[in-house]
Design a protein around this nucleic acid. Structure first.
Ligand code: MN
Ligand code: MN
Ligand code: MN
Ligand code: MN
Lengths: 154, 154
DNA sequence: TTTCATTTGTAGCCTTGACTACATAAGGTG
DNA sequence: CACCTTATGTAGTCAAGGCTACAAATGAAA
């Protein structure tokens, strides 16, 4: 309250915002786009894991893996199906499409590199797992390559 | 289609899912929690920058910085105010609260370390800026320290 | 002082991704 | 086969975070 006592009204600037601001919007937009694909990547990756481990991926297993209700899983899977990443029919288990498989392979490989990179830096495994789960989706090919360089000791 | 011709029905497992799945839910939940704070961090950081650069932070500047409409900014700022991070009154500019200032300082410092770390690894600046914008929110104190170790050449 | 471009605000809509409560299908067990 | 637990599906709600369209306030310039 008291901090706003004598605050002047906004000052109109005719001139455009200085150069510093140029391009920041694009960065933010790219980041938002990356965000919108996180769930898809995590889901196809987990579905692939479940198929390897149990021979099939069921909604309830995904719910347990993500810590959400089965309803959330079912609705998310419907979106993935709409987007051509999985196939599923009522009361059947969930299968990856070709596109879904490719995405899963890529996501899994990248995730592994990020995790191993963090652990190579000395980050404790538990913490590294948490950080990698979020970081993975924002690692560009260039950054991934840099991480791999470090891992291969080059 | 043809891939699902002879697909067996789901197999019921009485036994709980193997150990591999234990704990993954918690990791995902922590990551979701981190996500829910990204906007707040980016906003207070940008608001602090605008105040330094222009003496004030206006909704329209935030809209330009983030590449969204002013309506989105106004509604987001309302949430930030509800959460005690900013103060603003109708037609006035936006101010950080004490809590907002502290968060801005922390977020900015972490963001800077992440960006410099990526560039130290040889990632081109433009790419590093994009990656850092997303990665910063998923960097734990332990990982941040590891990044700083690398930067200080230790 | 009046005007008018700029800025801010409001109303209403949408998608994503979360939830609870309840309904129905599947399929193992007795 | 019938039963009953488990899994899946449906209905309805909510908040965050986007948007467009329109309305009102601000303040610089005429
Ligand atoms: Mn992953
Ligand atoms: Mn992830
Ligand atoms: Mn930031
Ligand atoms: Mn950011």
């Amino acid at each position: 309250m008291k901090a706003q006592k004598n605050i002047p009204l906004r000052i109109r600037r005719t001139k455009p915002v200085p150069a510093s601001g140029a391009g920041t919007a694009v960065i933010q937009q790219i980041t938002r786009a990356a965000h919108s694909q996180e769930r898809a990547q995590d889901y196809v990756e987990t579905i692939a894991d479940l198929i390897v481990e149990h021979g099939e991926a069921r909604a309830i297993d995904l719910a347990k893996a993500f810590g959400v209700t089965h309803v959330t899983v079912i609705r998310t899977v419907q979106r993935l199906q709409r987007d051509g990443l999985v196939n599923t029919r009522p009361y059947r288990s969930i299968f990856l499409t070709e596109a879904g498989s490719r995405l899963a392979v890529q996501a899994k490989a990248r995730h592994r590199v990020v995790l191993e990179f963090l652990m190579a830096l000395g980050v404790p495994e538990g913490v590294a797992k948490v950080d990698a789960e979020g970081i993975e989706h924002h690692v560009s090919p260039e950054t991934l390559e840099a991480f791999q360089r470090v891992l291969s000791g080059a």
